[in-house]
Each structure stands twice: as structure tokens, then as C-alpha cells.
Design a protein around this nucleic acid. Sequence first.
DNA 1: AAGTGGTCTAGACCACCTA
DNA 2: AGGTGGTCTAGACCACTTT
Lengths: 244, 244
Amino acid sequence: MHTTPKVNRDLFEPNYIQLVRIFQDQISTGLLRPGDRLPSESQLCKNHHISRMTVRRAINILVEQGFVVTERGRGTFVKPIQFWSASFNLNQLRNLLSDENKIKIKILEASITNANDILAQKMKVNRGQRLLHIRRLILSVDKPIIYHREYLLYDPSRPIVESELDVTELKCLFEGTSNSYIKYGSLSLEATVLNDNEARILQIPEATASLTIEHTFFDFEDRPISWGHFICPGLTLTFTTLSA
Amino acid sequence: MHTTPKVNRDLFEPNYIQLVRIFQDQISTGLLRPGDRLPSESQLCKNHHISRMTVRRAINILVEQGFVVTERGRGTFVKPIQFWSASFNLNQLRNLLSDENKIKIKILEASITNANDILAQKMKVNRGQRLLHIRRLILSVDKPIIYHREYLLYDPSRPIVESELDVTELKCLFEGTSNSYIKYGSLSLEATVLNDNEARILQIPEATASLTIEHTFFDFEDRPISWGHFICPGLTLTFTTLSA
DNA sequence: AAGTGGTCTAGACCACCTA
DNA sequence: AGGTGGTCTAGACCACTTT
């Protein structure tokens, strides 16, 4: 028989974090298995000599992290693995683009076009509306890795053309430092096969598999102000995650 | 001038949830913009006649949801949009497979094979180790939508062969109801192009773009017990998300 | 009735930042 | 020094489940 660790009030680490870690460890070592009940909150208070709010805080974190579920009147239970709990985030893309020294952004085209039917629908404007069209190539150590096509609302009352042409606009988006016009975005991820034009631009064989991230960004009046695609060929971008 | 809404103690909705919603509304309507400072916690206590802990609870939720950031000694501020904050989850896949009436799972093959170099590495076993190989086709209204290849540790001491062959094993994973041997999984998402075999099995043209989810599942001793791929062609699977 | 988790209070002390 | 967020306490009442 061995005793479980106790919260130590003398450490720098807050008590509730210590308690979270204690349970994470017990779950990951299999000491606590899916379906097992955790000690009740009042028991934990006594065992660790901490208050109820501190215990609840720890348990809430475990709930958010997906390790346990609470059932009122019954107790708190270790959750079984759920395939769905996995989620893919864009951190790999972030890391890819974060190395300032390696990354260059080349403007391939910047022109004014008139909205066709698709654009009119996507940007919620009338057909024929003037739109700014920008095509960029993102290079890492002078090797093309991502191709970006974007259509922007061309609003003469907003002097954004300069800044949007600039590389910084894209970087701001990445870094979240922009005090920009963007309230939120809608992203969509799908698999595509490069056409000959895209393949030539990216300097890789045609018909290569590619991940395409379609984005629409909205301003504070909920109007779309940007619609475009990041085209990330082959293995420049893979998503990895844990399902716990 | 108009006054902001106040927490109402008489509603069914908990006070902290009400406060969360108040700020979510103010942010989404643009009343609070990125960089703006929220009222201090003590001010919120006075304004809404609620205790500090209740205020802090609401703010913690806003932090977790990515709407605000706190800075000790300075205040709480509305966060600008971050492209990276977006994350893609597997709910669409879940929905796709949740309709019991439409979905059928067909076992294409179940055989014992010996591990080659790749399998030996992926499953952390010796070369030549016997592995269970299962190929499944997932159909929706009798139309193939997902092709699944999987290699399983063949452990005679565990009588899992029956259950793993069974369709339920896959379903359990999806539903998280399994009291299974799986502690956690590692998932990886990439774009692929269907080869002729896959295309034939899925009854779609060759060279179609496809999303492939590679998975490795581990038991409670952290040994890989399953390695495989879900192959989701074309637009059967697209990920959508918001970046706020 | 007894035990569980859910919400909430009215304080306290601390570390940090700004002035 | 005064304000900010970060941690924590020792209670309280409630809704719910089990015995």
C-alpha cells in the first residue's frame, strides 16, 4: 500500500495546480482508470487540508481538460478516451512562419478586379463590385512553401490598400498584434490536388496532395472583408494532436 | 448614453454565466474592441452586486475562451483576433458517423501478418511480430465514404480479437463508451492523393484529394496497440472553425 | 437522511504595476 | 501608495442522487 501525494502549501506552485497534477498523474499512470470515481470534494478538502473552492477549482480544470466528468449527486469520474476530443490547431503553421530570418513573403500580384458570381456570394457584395486581388508566395529559405490567394473589399474610405499590400498585414494576422479591422474569421480546411498553375508557382510536381485553408475575415459590422486560400502542399503542414 | 446590462440574481442562469454573456455580447457587437480594458474586478463587484469570486469565475472563462487576457497589476484586456486560436475538431466526422440507420461498417479483410520494418517501428515491436490486420469500409446509405486500415497488437493473452473484429469496437471508440484497453491516442492529419487501390475500394476516381487521419492508440502501459489510417476522400470531411 | 456536486459570499493576504 | 489581478479560506444554501 502506498499513499497518494498531498498538496504542499510551502511550494511556489499554487495548491489547485498541485491537485490537478496529482490527478493527471494518477490517471496517466493508470492508477485511476476510466469510470473510476475520484474522492468526493469534501474528502479532498480533509485529505489535503485545503478549502472546498480550491478543490473545485482543480476539478473544474480537469473537467475542461477532458480528464473527468462531474455528475451532480453522484460524484466525479474519470472519462474514457474519446476520439472526438482531439482537435487540431494551427500551431504548426505558426511555428513554420515564426522564424523571421527564414521566412520571406513575395507579392506575386496586386490588382483590382470585378466580383464574379462566386466572389459576390463569398464577399456578400454585388456582382461587378471592385475587389482587391492579392497573390502572395511565402518562402522559407528561398523555397516556396505556401501560396496565398486573397480577395479584399476595396473601400476607398478606408486607406488600407497600402498596409494590406504590405507584408506586415499578413504578419499582424499571424501575431495577433494588429489593431485591425478584423473582428473574427471563419476557417475551413480541406484536401486538394494542386493544379498545374499552383504546382508551377510552388515549384513542385503537379497533382501533389495539398491542404487548403480557406478563410473569410469579417469586420466589426460582420461584413466579409477578406476571402482567400492558403495552399500548403504535401507535408509542409500536418496536424498532430492527442486524444485523451 | 446607455447603460450596460446587469447581472440579475433572480434568473435561473448563474450569475457568472450572465456576466460572461454580457462581455461576450459587448465584444461581439464591437462595444468593446481589442485592446480595451474591462472594468476592474472590484468595480464589477460593486456594479453588479456580486462577490469577487463570482467575477473572477466569469473572467477566467473569458480567458479560457480566448476573448480576453489578464495582466497582473494592469487589468484585463480584450484580445485581438489570433489566426492561431482556431482549432479544428472531429465533430463533423462524429456527426457523419452518428446516424446509426445510415451507417454500415463492412470488414474487407481480417488477417494475421508479420511486422515489416515500418510496422515494427510504428508499433514498437520486433520485426516479424504477428499483427492483426483489419481493413474496413464505412458506408453511408450503402455508399462508401471512409476506408480504414488498422494494425493491432495480436496478444493471445487478451481475448480481444473477437471484439475488435466486431464493428462495435470502432463504434465504442467513437462514442467513448468503451471500457477499453486504450489510454490515449495520437492523431495526425495530412492531405493525400488516392492510389488506384483506394480509389477502387471507395468507388471514386483515382487521384482524388483525400484527408488521411493517421492514428496510434496506446494502452495503459504506453505501448502502441493499434496503428492505422482513416482515409476520407474529397469533401466527405472538411473542417470548419472560427477564429475569435 | 446523508452524501454529492453547483453556486455564492465576504472577507484575507500576496505579487505586480503605475503613479 | 493605491490599484490591479492571483490565491485561498470557512462558511452558506441549493439541486440532485443514493440508501
